[in-house]
Design a protein around this nucleic acid. Structure first.
Lengths: 115, 115
DNA sequence: CCCATACTCAAGTCGCGACTTGACTATCCG
DNA sequence: CGGATAGTCAAGTCGCGACTTGAGTATGGG
Protein backbone atom coordinates (compact mmCIF):
# COMPACT_ATOMS: atom_id res chain seq x y z
CA UNK A 1 0.00 0.00 0.00
CA UNK A 2 1.90 3.09 1.15
CA UNK A 3 4.95 0.88 1.28
CA UNK A 4 8.42 1.33 0.05
CA UNK A 5 7.50 1.82 -3.57
CA UNK A 6 10.47 -0.03 -4.99
CA UNK A 7 9.82 -3.28 -3.15
CA UNK A 8 6.17 -2.89 -3.98
CA UNK A 9 6.77 -2.61 -7.70
CA UNK A 10 9.27 -5.44 -7.72
CA UNK A 11 7.03 -7.95 -5.99
CA UNK A 12 4.06 -6.85 -8.03
CA UNK A 13 6.10 -7.44 -11.18
CA UNK A 14 7.18 -10.86 -9.94
CA UNK A 15 3.58 -11.77 -9.22
CA UNK A 16 2.75 -12.46 -12.86
CA UNK A 17 3.84 -15.77 -14.34
CA UNK A 18 4.36 -14.41 -17.85
CA UNK A 19 6.68 -11.81 -16.42
CA UNK A 20 8.54 -14.46 -14.47
CA UNK A 21 8.81 -16.47 -17.68
CA UNK A 22 10.38 -13.43 -19.31
CA UNK A 23 12.85 -13.08 -16.46
CA UNK A 24 13.59 -16.75 -16.73
CA UNK A 25 14.47 -16.50 -20.40
CA UNK A 26 16.44 -13.30 -19.91
CA UNK A 27 18.55 -14.99 -17.27
CA UNK A 28 19.99 -17.07 -20.11
CA UNK A 29 20.90 -13.98 -22.08
CA UNK A 30 19.63 -10.81 -23.68
CA UNK A 31 16.73 -11.08 -26.14
CA UNK A 32 14.67 -8.87 -28.42
CA UNK A 33 11.01 -8.17 -27.74
CA UNK A 34 9.80 -10.40 -30.54
CA UNK A 35 12.13 -13.20 -29.51
CA UNK A 36 10.65 -12.97 -26.02
CA UNK A 37 7.16 -12.97 -27.45
CA UNK A 38 7.45 -16.13 -29.53
CA UNK A 39 6.98 -18.82 -26.87
CA UNK A 40 4.44 -16.78 -24.94
CA UNK A 41 1.07 -17.21 -26.70
CA UNK A 42 0.12 -13.61 -26.01
CA UNK A 43 0.42 -10.75 -28.47
CA UNK A 44 3.54 -8.69 -28.96
CA UNK A 45 1.75 -5.69 -27.53
CA UNK A 46 1.07 -7.58 -24.31
CA UNK A 47 4.74 -8.54 -24.05
CA UNK A 48 5.70 -4.89 -24.46
CA UNK A 49 3.36 -4.00 -21.61
CA UNK A 50 4.96 -6.64 -19.39
CA UNK A 51 8.36 -5.27 -20.28
CA UNK A 52 7.24 -1.81 -19.24
CA UNK A 53 6.28 -3.14 -15.83
CA UNK A 54 9.55 -5.03 -15.54
CA UNK A 55 11.58 -2.01 -16.53
CA UNK A 56 9.77 0.37 -14.19
CA UNK A 57 10.38 -2.04 -11.36
CA UNK A 58 14.09 -2.18 -12.13
CA UNK A 59 14.17 -5.88 -12.93
CA UNK A 60 14.96 -5.45 -16.60
CA UNK A 61 16.80 -2.90 -18.69
CA UNK A 62 16.15 -2.36 -22.35
CA UNK A 63 17.93 -0.47 -25.05
CA UNK A 64 16.79 0.21 -28.55
CA UNK A 65 19.28 -0.25 -31.36
CA UNK A 66 17.91 0.43 -34.79
CA UNK A 67 14.47 -1.06 -34.86
CA UNK A 68 15.11 -3.80 -32.35
CA UNK A 69 14.82 -3.38 -28.58
CA UNK A 70 17.26 -5.52 -26.69
CA UNK A 71 16.24 -6.60 -23.19
CA UNK A 72 18.48 -7.78 -20.43
CA UNK A 73 18.08 -8.76 -16.85
CA UNK A 74 19.08 -6.24 -14.22
CA UNK A 75 20.13 -8.48 -11.35
CA UNK A 76 20.13 -5.78 -8.69
CA UNK A 77 16.36 -5.78 -8.90
CA UNK A 78 16.28 -9.47 -8.11
CA UNK A 79 18.69 -8.73 -5.29
CA UNK A 80 16.22 -6.37 -3.65
CA UNK A 81 13.56 -9.06 -3.56
CA UNK A 82 16.01 -11.67 -2.34
CA UNK A 83 17.17 -9.39 0.45
CA UNK A 84 13.63 -8.68 1.56
CA UNK A 85 12.89 -12.39 1.79
CA UNK A 86 16.18 -13.27 3.47
CA UNK A 87 15.56 -10.54 5.98
CA UNK A 88 12.15 -11.78 7.07
CA UNK A 89 13.38 -15.31 7.22
CA UNK A 90 16.34 -14.16 9.22
CA UNK A 91 14.18 -12.45 11.80
CA UNK A 92 12.08 -15.53 12.15
CA UNK A 93 14.98 -17.89 12.57
CA UNK A 94 16.65 -15.53 14.97
CA UNK A 95 13.66 -16.01 17.22
CA UNK A 96 14.36 -19.68 17.43
CA UNK A 97 17.91 -18.93 18.41
CA UNK A 98 16.65 -16.79 21.27
CA UNK A 99 14.24 -19.51 22.26
CA UNK A 100 17.22 -21.80 22.42
CA UNK A 101 18.95 -19.37 24.75
CA UNK A 102 15.91 -19.19 26.95
CA UNK A 103 15.69 -22.90 27.23
CA UNK A 104 19.40 -23.27 27.78
CA UNK A 105 19.67 -21.14 30.84
CA UNK A 106 17.65 -18.92 33.15
CA UNK A 107 17.59 -15.33 31.95
CA UNK A 108 18.70 -12.61 34.46
CA UNK A 109 15.39 -10.91 35.26
CA UNK A 110 12.73 -10.12 32.78
CA UNK A 111 9.08 -10.93 33.11
CA UNK A 112 6.44 -10.00 30.66
CA UNK A 113 3.82 -12.44 29.64
CA UNK A 114 2.64 -12.58 26.06
CA UNK A 115 0.64 -15.18 24.13
CA UNK B 1 0.82 -19.92 -16.80
CA UNK B 2 0.90 -23.68 -16.51
CA UNK B 3 3.94 -23.25 -14.35
CA UNK B 4 5.11 -25.03 -11.32
CA UNK B 5 2.06 -24.32 -9.23
CA UNK B 6 3.94 -23.86 -5.99
CA UNK B 7 6.20 -21.08 -7.22
CA UNK B 8 3.21 -19.54 -8.89
CA UNK B 9 1.16 -19.41 -5.74
CA UNK B 10 4.06 -18.14 -3.66
CA UNK B 11 4.88 -15.21 -5.92
CA UNK B 12 1.24 -14.40 -6.37
CA UNK B 13 0.87 -14.31 -2.60
CA UNK B 14 3.94 -12.08 -2.27
CA UNK B 15 2.53 -9.72 -4.87
CA UNK B 16 0.10 -8.08 -2.47
CA UNK B 17 1.43 -5.49 -0.07
CA UNK B 18 -1.03 -6.29 2.69
CA UNK B 19 0.10 -9.89 2.56
CA UNK B 20 3.72 -8.81 2.70
CA UNK B 21 2.84 -6.64 5.68
CA UNK B 22 1.39 -9.73 7.35
CA UNK B 23 4.55 -11.70 6.61
CA UNK B 24 6.58 -8.84 7.97
CA UNK B 25 4.75 -8.83 11.27
CA UNK B 26 4.79 -12.60 11.52
CA UNK B 27 8.55 -12.61 11.09
CA UNK B 28 8.68 -10.99 14.53
CA UNK B 29 6.59 -13.74 16.05
CA UNK B 30 3.31 -15.62 15.93
CA UNK B 31 0.11 -13.60 16.08
CA UNK B 32 -3.64 -14.12 16.18
CA UNK B 33 -5.86 -13.11 13.27
CA UNK B 34 -7.30 -10.12 15.07
CA UNK B 35 -3.87 -8.99 16.22
CA UNK B 36 -2.76 -9.08 12.60
CA UNK B 37 -5.85 -7.17 11.54
CA UNK B 38 -5.45 -4.22 13.91
CA UNK B 39 -2.84 -2.14 12.06
CA UNK B 40 -4.21 -3.02 8.64
CA UNK B 41 -7.22 -0.75 7.97
CA UNK B 42 -9.09 -3.51 6.22
CA UNK B 43 -11.76 -5.70 7.78
CA UNK B 44 -11.07 -8.86 9.71
CA UNK B 45 -12.74 -10.87 6.96
CA UNK B 46 -10.29 -9.49 4.42
CA UNK B 47 -7.37 -10.46 6.64
CA UNK B 48 -8.74 -13.97 6.88
CA UNK B 49 -8.89 -14.14 3.09
CA UNK B 50 -5.27 -13.01 2.85
CA UNK B 51 -4.31 -15.64 5.38
CA UNK B 52 -6.01 -18.29 3.27
CA UNK B 53 -3.89 -17.27 0.30
CA UNK B 54 -0.77 -17.25 2.43
CA UNK B 55 -1.53 -20.63 3.90
CA UNK B 56 -2.34 -22.26 0.57
CA UNK B 57 0.93 -20.95 -0.80
CA UNK B 58 2.85 -22.45 2.10
CA UNK B 59 4.16 -19.16 3.42
CA UNK B 60 2.20 -19.26 6.65
CA UNK B 61 0.87 -21.96 8.91
CA UNK B 62 -2.05 -21.49 11.23
CA UNK B 63 -3.49 -23.50 14.03
CA UNK B 64 -6.69 -22.96 15.91
CA UNK B 65 -6.63 -23.26 19.66
CA UNK B 66 -9.93 -22.60 21.33
CA UNK B 67 -11.43 -19.64 19.55
CA UNK B 68 -8.18 -18.03 18.51
CA UNK B 69 -6.25 -18.91 15.37
CA UNK B 70 -2.55 -18.54 15.80
CA UNK B 71 -0.51 -17.74 12.71
CA UNK B 72 3.15 -18.25 12.17
CA UNK B 73 5.58 -17.84 9.35
CA UNK B 74 6.66 -20.95 7.49
CA UNK B 75 10.14 -20.00 6.34
CA UNK B 76 10.49 -22.79 3.83
CA UNK B 77 7.97 -20.97 1.69
CA UNK B 78 10.15 -17.89 1.67
CA UNK B 79 13.06 -20.17 0.85
CA UNK B 80 11.39 -21.35 -2.34
CA UNK B 81 11.03 -17.77 -3.57
CA UNK B 82 14.56 -16.89 -2.54
CA UNK B 83 15.92 -19.90 -4.37
CA UNK B 84 14.05 -19.06 -7.52
CA UNK B 85 15.48 -15.55 -7.50
CA UNK B 86 19.00 -16.62 -6.61
CA UNK B 87 18.86 -19.15 -9.40
CA UNK B 88 17.95 -16.66 -12.14
CA UNK B 89 20.48 -14.18 -10.84
CA UNK B 90 23.07 -16.93 -10.75
CA UNK B 91 22.48 -17.86 -14.34
CA UNK B 92 22.81 -14.28 -15.39
CA UNK B 93 26.00 -13.63 -13.48
CA UNK B 94 27.47 -16.86 -14.70
CA UNK B 95 27.17 -15.43 -18.18
CA UNK B 96 29.36 -12.51 -17.20
CA UNK B 97 31.98 -14.87 -15.87
CA UNK B 98 32.08 -16.60 -19.23
CA UNK B 99 32.23 -13.24 -20.97
CA UNK B 100 35.16 -12.36 -18.71
CA UNK B 101 36.96 -15.46 -19.85
CA UNK B 102 36.41 -14.55 -23.44
CA UNK B 103 37.66 -11.03 -22.93
CA UNK B 104 40.62 -12.08 -20.85
CA UNK B 105 42.39 -13.80 -23.65
CA UNK B 106 41.96 -15.70 -26.80
CA UNK B 107 41.57 -19.18 -25.46
CA UNK B 108 44.98 -20.88 -25.86
CA UNK B 109 43.77 -24.38 -26.23
CA UNK B 110 41.93 -25.20 -23.07
CA UNK B 111 40.59 -23.04 -20.32
CA UNK B 112 40.05 -23.89 -16.72
CA UNK B 113 38.80 -20.79 -14.98
CA UNK B 114 38.08 -20.47 -11.34
CA UNK B 115 37.48 -17.14 -9.56
C1' DC C 1 -26.14 -17.80 32.11
C1' DC C 2 -25.00 -14.11 29.14
C1' DC C 3 -22.28 -11.07 26.77
C1' DA C 4 -18.22 -10.11 24.46
C1' DT C 5 -14.62 -11.99 21.85
C1' DA C 6 -12.72 -14.24 17.89
C1' DC C 7 -13.44 -15.73 14.15
C1' DT C 8 -16.30 -18.02 9.88
C1' DC C 9 -19.11 -18.03 5.72
C1' DA C 10 -21.66 -16.49 1.65
C1' DA C 11 -22.82 -12.89 -1.35
C1' DG C 12 -22.05 -9.16 -3.81
C1' DT C 13 -19.44 -4.74 -5.43
C1' DC C 14 -15.83 -2.71 -7.88
C1' DG C 15 -11.55 -1.35 -9.86
C1' DC C 16 -7.39 -2.76 -11.80
C1' DG C 17 -4.52 -5.41 -14.41
C1' DA C 18 -3.81 -8.59 -18.36
C1' DC C 19 -4.85 -8.88 -22.82
C1' DT C 20 -6.58 -7.77 -27.67
C1' DT C 21 -7.37 -5.06 -31.73
C1' DG C 22 -6.22 -1.99 -35.20
C1' DA C 23 -3.86 1.71 -36.90
C1' DC C 24 0.59 3.86 -37.12
C1' DT C 25 5.94 4.72 -37.31
C1' DA C 26 10.62 3.51 -38.00
C1' DT C 27 14.27 0.61 -39.86
C1' DC C 28 16.38 -2.73 -42.76
C1' DC C 29 17.22 -5.12 -47.07
C1' DG C 30 16.90 -6.65 -51.84
C1' DC D 1 11.63 2.37 -54.07
C1' DG D 2 8.60 -1.09 -51.92
C1' DG D 3 7.75 -4.66 -48.85
C1' DA D 4 8.78 -6.94 -44.74
C1' DT D 5 10.23 -6.76 -40.07
C1' DA D 6 10.14 -4.76 -35.33
C1' DG D 7 8.09 -2.29 -32.34
C1' DT D 8 4.70 1.66 -30.58
C1' DC D 9 0.35 3.68 -29.15
C1' DA D 10 -4.46 4.33 -27.84
C1' DA D 11 -8.77 2.32 -26.93
C1' DG D 12 -11.53 -0.84 -25.24
C1' DT D 13 -12.99 -5.60 -23.16
C1' DC D 14 -13.16 -8.64 -19.44
C1' DG D 15 -12.30 -11.51 -15.55
C1' DC D 16 -10.28 -11.89 -11.23
C1' DG D 17 -8.79 -10.47 -7.00
C1' DA D 18 -9.27 -7.37 -2.98
C1' DC D 19 -12.54 -5.82 -0.13
C1' DT D 20 -17.12 -5.08 2.34
C1' DT D 21 -21.37 -6.31 4.50
C1' DG D 22 -24.19 -8.89 7.28
C1' DA D 23 -25.50 -12.86 9.48
C1' DG D 24 -23.98 -17.00 11.90
C1' DT D 25 -21.08 -20.17 15.21
C1' DA D 26 -17.95 -21.42 18.93
C1' DT D 27 -15.46 -20.24 23.00
C1' DG D 28 -14.23 -18.11 27.29
C1' DG D 29 -14.81 -15.13 31.28
C1' DG D 30 -17.31 -12.80 34.91
Amino acid sequence: MLNNGAVDRIFHALGDSNRRAIIERLSRGALSVSALAKPLDITLAAVVQHLQVLEESGLVRTEKLGRVRSCQLHPEGLRVAEDWLANRRGLWEQRFDRLGELLDGPVPSRKKART
